Computed example of a mutant assay.
Amino acid sequence: MFKAPLSFYGRIRRTEFALTQILYMITYFFVLVFENNKAVGSWIVIILLLPIYLLISQGAKRCHDLGRSGWWQLVPFYGLMMFFAAGDFGPNQYGDNPKGEGNADYDEFGYDFKTGKMMGAEGSEPSQALREIKPD
């Protein structure tokens, strides 16, 4: 969790997105508390720039998990969908599923990494071309 949080590439789960939102709210609360203190000054608002960048980047990655562009986070009430909707099953154009569900465990030649066997088109028997390469 929280691998490359300032990057706009990849996909994240709902949990990481929600934790980012909670951490931002905690940071914002402390900024509001210290902003009223005259000894600290008004420069403390600058501290919010990094968390806002973090929110935008994490929001873009959550949109990617839903199969949408990162610009969708600007749509009103789409943030609720980002909190509650399940991500795309398996890989999509933005990367593999962060939960690992539906990601291919075999390469383009049909070798299954979990079982150590060659996979066919239907998933159980190797195709004729693969049987010729590696007989059982």
Rank of each mutant, 00 (worst) to 15 (best):
I26G: 11
T27K: 02
T27S: 12
T27R: 00
Y28F: 15
F29P: 06
F29I: 09
F30H: 10
V31D: 00
V31K: 01
F34W: 10
N37S: 12
N37D: 14
N37K: 11
K38R: 14
G41Q: 05
G41D: 04
W43A: 14
W43D: 10
I46C: 07
I47T: 15
I47H: 06
L48R: 12
L55Q: 13
L55G: 06
L55M: 14
I56E: 09
S57P: 05
S57D: 01
Q58K: 05
Q58G: 02
Q58D: 00
G59W: 04
A60S: 14
A60E: 11
K61P: 03
K61M: 05
C63S: 05
H64T: 08
H64I: 09
H64S: 09
D65R: 04
D65Q: 02
G67A: 01
G70T: 07
W71Y: 14
L74P: 04
V75R: 08
V75H: 06
P76T: 00
Y78R: 13
M81F: 15
M82R: 04
F83I: 15
F83G: 11
F83Y: 15
F84I: 06
F89M: 07
F89T: 08
G90L: 05
G90Y: 09
N92S: 03
N92I: 07
Q93P: 13
D96K: 15
N97H: 02
P98S: 07
P98V: 12
G100H: 09
G102I: 03
G102C: 04
N103W: 06
A104L: 13
Y106I: 00
Y106Q: 10
Y106E: 08
F109P: 02
F113C: 01
F113Q: 03
